[in-house]
Nucleic acid binder design. Structure first.
Lengths: 92, 92
DNA sequence: TAAACAATTAGATAATTTTCTAAATAACAA
DNA sequence: TTGTTATTTAGAAAATTATCTAATTGTTTA
């Protein structure tokens, strides 16, 4: 897993908002786009980056594509952030 | 605190490496730069972004500037990441 | 089949980011 | 004071990213 893609994906506020939406429930691409003022193709692009980072999973069902969050890749981020905090401790 | 600056700061691998270095001990700008192949001004720029995100603190001592990590801003990131994971749970 | 709908892909542009070299600032040491 | 060292600032080029409209693909429905 290319962790850089994960950090890059998390760097954009629109994408973080998308993850916040998906935290509550799975949504189709259109439902996600409805929450934003930017165009559908732009949202599609953001979804693609989230997918490449493996932060979301896309499942096609008929003409819809259902997106769901995948938090497993966040574990490594969490671990790293905690390691930064722990390191700090040794100086105090 | 502008959290977007924090996420942006964490998105770059060089800056993440800098934080990894500072986890062990405080370092001067020059010592940090010595760990990388990119130019000092570029490192200086990265340090500035980290400082704006409040992820590092800079203290001038004579002609040197000592950089130290500040992990307090990471707490909000941590909390958000955990909230994403928890939300996931409710669907299982 | 034809029209409508959901979503993506293509291609372009604008904005942002990364990086560089050269120059400036500030502190130290001879 | 003059030269050296540590670091940043300025300004520009190159690379990446975010966004748009138009076109395409695939599915559903009349």
């Amino acid at each position: 897993m290319k962790m850089n893609l994960v950090y890059k994906a998390l760097a954009d506020p629109t994408r973080r908002d998308i993850l916040n939406l998906l935290k509550n429930r799975d949504l189709t691409a259109g439902e996600i786009a409805d929450h934003f003022r930017i165009s559908k193709p732009s949202i599609s692009h953001h979804l693609n980056l989230l997918k490449q980072a493996d932060l979301v999973h896309a499942e096609k069902e008929g003409q819809y594509i259902h997106y769901s969050i995948n938090t497993t890749v966040l574990q490594d981020v969490l671990t790293w952030l905690l390691s930064l905090q722990e390191g700090k401790g040794k100086r105090e």
